[in-house]
């Protein structure tokens, strides 16, 4: 939290500090829009800070600070539309886009920032571990809408698999962390706490990263965030048929909805997943509403309320 507030323009950060102190509010997102009040939200509640509004020069200063005054380092990030900063927090941006040869080259005038604060909840996936491993590791797909805690779930699972002391054995865990969200690596070294058997491919495109890890690191399980494109799916199929277990996440409300997505069809046709975890953002991040087996039958015995 503190390193984000240090990046923000002083007027805004001091107001946020005050609001957090007064209202005991733990925001999940800080949203800044040009000439608009600052929005803080924790998934369900919104707080508006009316005292300061983001100005053009402040937006530029903020971008400059994010990039350590070296905008050329954000080339790829400005094309993708989000920037991951140290601590694993992600800043989404939108604004005027420069197009070259029909594809987006960069976002030029940034008008909105969405700062998503990385939350690290240690140990909340413990009740679900038996669904992932009984006698063998299951290929699992974690389904959830935005802000439902998919990445947090994945991170926690990775912690247990790589040596959290719950399973009888530990697994060689490889993580493809395209957006540096799972591990929040700095110079390739994970900043979040993990156990010893984790190998991370940081900032690497998912499809390539999976294949590279299979070839180079002989993992037992590969963890990937947000499968979406056809290339990802193809690499996933390759990996699964190379005898490596996969745990990945996908955007969606439930299994039925995800099954409709054209890019993901080959996965369901080949029936590669043994477990589906459905997360919801209704109550709180990391709320598992359903667990299904490979035939789509509910196997979750009892919902876990305590987080």
């Amino acid at each position: 939290m503190e390193n984000i507030l240090n990046l923000l323009p002083e007027t805004i950060s001091s107001e946020i500090r005050q609001a957090m102190k007064n209202k005991r509010f733990q925001p999940q997102e800080i949203r800044l829009r040009m000439n608009q009040p600052v929005e803080l939200n924790d998934g369900t509640n919104i707080i508006w800070l009316f005292k300061t509004r983001l100005t053009q020069s402040e937006a530029l200063l903020f971008l400059n600070r994010i990039s350590e005054y070296s905008m050329y380092r954000l080339e790829e990030e400005l094309r993708q539309g989000y920037i991951t900063i140290s601590g694993g927090h992600r800043i989404g941006i939108s604004g005027e886009v420069i197009v070259e040869n029909g594809s987006v080259k960069a976002i030029k005038h940034v008008s909105s920032f969405n700062i998503r604060l990385a939350t690290d909840m240690v140990g909340f996936t413990k009740p679900y571990l038996s669904y992932i491993y009984d006698s063998s590791l299951k290929n699992s797909l974690i389904i959830g809408p935005p802000q439902s805690g998919k990445t947090t779930f994945l991170r926690d699972i990775a912690r247990y698999l790589s040596g959290g002391g719950v399973f009888k054995r530990t697994f060689k865990t490889a993580i493809v962390d395209e957006r540096s969200e799972i591990c929040a690596s700095v110079n390739g070294v994970p900043q979040h706490h993990f156990h010893s058997r984790v190998d991370v491919m940081d900032k690497c495109p998912k499809s390539e990263g999976m294949m590279m890890l299979v070839r180079s690191m002989s993992p037992e399980v590969i963890i990937v965030d947000e499968i979406g494109s056809e290339k990802d799916v193809q690499a996933l199929m390759e990996t699964i048929h190379a005898g490596v277990c996969i745990i990945c996440t996908v955007h969606g409300r439930d299994l039925e909805e995800v099954k409709q997505r054209p890019a993901l069809l080959p996965l369901f046709r080949a029936n590669v997943f043994d477990r589906f975890f459905v997360l919801s953002n209704q109550k709180k991040a990391g709320d598992v509403t359903d667990i299904l087996d490979q035939h789509g039958r509910t196997i979750l015995k009892q919902r876990v309320n305590s987080l």
């Binding site: 400059n64 990039s67 005054y69 070296s70 905008m71 050329y72 080339e75 960069a106």
Partner: peptide, 10 residues
């Protein structure tokens, strides 16, 4: 101009 442009421009 330092640090305000992409690599080619810089």
């Amino acid at each position: 101009t330092l640090g305000q442009h992409d690599i080619v421009q810089q």
